[in-house]
């Protein structure tokens, strides 16, 4: 039995979400299979974009700016260990925050927990991420580099990366429904973020006194964690920064989910 009433907090929300798991799966599958339709090289895009970014950043930061790598780690590998999580998070932020507007025809015509839509956009980013792991394997072979045991902890940092980007993405997605201004803000955030996050350089180049402040950007913890896992512990982890990253990501996620749930009942009215 369903009761529809104004401002009723849906006690069944999470159970509903489970009921709609098939819809979630099929929407995620739709988004994945449509993403590279009618492109000539298809999934190769998921490889080319991070690969070119890696090359450019290696040249700019490694060769021109001559920033130091971590001891014993080739600069391209250092950059790529940062590019991987960056593309994952940037895609989640960019795609999920536009996903509601892109699916407005669904929202206006059928009911389902709206959380499914940005979630399926995040799945697409994860699939792209998995594909670009191929480059990582190739780089390991090329440089004859063997990762350490730390690599088995990578899934934890993937979760952290998803959490760090999902919170802001949900918030922006919900805001975007009402105020289309945020559509213009998101690419801007992603562009700035690429330079203020330690993608092209190691966060160890940041002066010690500023390290904690620098870690207010949750991406710092995510990228440092990735490097720690992928570069066999050669890249040391800055623990206070990581703790701060986790705390900020969790807070953003809580805010994002709360705001999303508060506004989602009115999405169809303001679409």
């Amino acid at each position: 039995m369903i009761i529809l009433e104004a401002g009723r907090t849906d006690t069944n929300y999470w159970r509903d979400l489970w009921t709609y798991r098939e819809l979630f799966a099929i929407l995620a599958w739709r988004d994945v299979s449509v993403r590279y339709k009618q492109t000539a090289i298809g999934f190769a895009w998921a490889i080319i974009r991070p690969l070119i970014t890696m090359v450019v950043f290696t040249v700019v930061f490694g060769q021109l700016a001559k920033l130091p790598s971590v001891a014993g780690v080739p600069y391209p590998l250092l950059v790529f260990a940062g590019t991987l999580p960056w593309f994952l998070c940037a895609s989640i932020l960019g795609d999920a925050s536009n996903s509601l507007v892109g699916n407005s025809h669904l929202i206006g015509k059928v009911y389902f927990p709206r959380l499914i839509i940005p979630a399926s956009a995040a799945i697409v980013a994860l699939v792209d991420f998995a594909v670009s792991m191929v480059i990582l394997a190739a780089l390991y072979l090329w440089f004859g580099y063997a990762p350490g045991w730390q690599i088995i902890l990578l899934p934890l940092f993937i979760v952290l990366g998803v959490a760090a980007s999902a919170g802001p993405a949900l918030l922006l997605a919900a805001l975007n429904v009402k105020y289309r201004d945020f559509r213009f803000l998101v690419p801007f955030i992603v562009q700035i973020g690429l330079y203020i996050s330690p993608v092209g350089f190691s966060s160890s180049v940041v002066p010690e006194a500023w390290r904690l402040w620098y870690s207010l950007n949750p991406m710092v913890g995510v990228i440092d964690g990735f490097r720690w896992c992928l570069l066999g512990g050669d890249s040391a982890i800055y623990w206070p920064g990581l703790v701060l990253s986790v705390a900020i990501s969790a807070t953003l996620l809580a805010i994002g989910v709360a705001y999303f749930r508060k506004t989602e009942r009115a999405f169809a009215d303001v679409m």
Partner: peptide, 12 residues
């Protein structure tokens, strides 16, 4: 359930 009522209730 696409939109919610401003007042009143529906039981389904």
């Amino acid at each position: 359930r696409i939109t919610e009522p401003t007042e009143g209730r529906v039981t389904i």
